[in-house]
Amino acid sequence: MPLNVVSLVSVGRHPQSGRQRRAEQDGRAVELGMNLKVVQNSQLTVLHAGASSEPVLRTYAGMGLPELKVLELAEQDDAVPALGDYLQSANADIVLTGVRAESGESSGMVPYLLAEQLGWPLVPRIADIVSIDDGVAEILLALPRGQRRAVSVPLPFVASVDNAAAEARQTAYGPGMRARIEGNKAVTEVDEVRAGWQESDAKPRPKRLKVVKAKTAADRFKAATAKPQGKAGKVMKSESAKEQAEEIFKLLLEEKVIK
């Protein structure tokens, strides 16, 4: 039986121009799903919760998808109940999402809420799915500083795709326009909590100033003029090269940069 992979996509926002675009991480989630299709012979469903008339969906379809599924929702509706309801019945094995949406609240809660609702494990910030054998997936997590961690998780699971995953392929206009976008009726629940919020354009955040809490003029003068003198470290002058290297090695082990 082929695996069922569902990639969730949303409407992105270009960071400079503010235009709508294919969301960066969602694109990577689709790319990962398409690569799995080649390796694992799985089925990929690309799912969007929102309006099926959305032109951005064509840019996802232009990656080479014959069709997209859309759960018809209005602007003020909550996407989680609709998605949860769909996934419960869709018999999915892997659900891929971005880490955070580029529009709306962008809280990054959708994968967590879906995982909680479905009772599936959640794998945060994945870089790649290495293999899937006997219903257990080997996954690479993206850690800060370019590091990776291997994790194994049983199917089914929800995963959010990090920026470290393979970049989304180019989208083609013609195939995108020809793709079938199928709108489905969905459970609609108005997000009432959000209706009570006030949204405004982001104000630039103040930079943190270096405040000198000096009590006397002499202290203030020192703070303004003196070089910040860190604690002088250990200096090894007369030791042999071997002793010096041993000391350095000890520090490296202590800081756990070498294993």
């Binding site: 800060p144 370019g146 961690r149 291997a150 940069v257």
Partner: peptide, 22 residues
Amino acid sequence: RLKDQGQVAVDPNAIPLAEAEF
């Protein structure tokens, strides 16, 4: 259900210099 298999060795020179730990 999430089983940690430990950190994976990555080519240190593939990490961008600004992010490198060591």
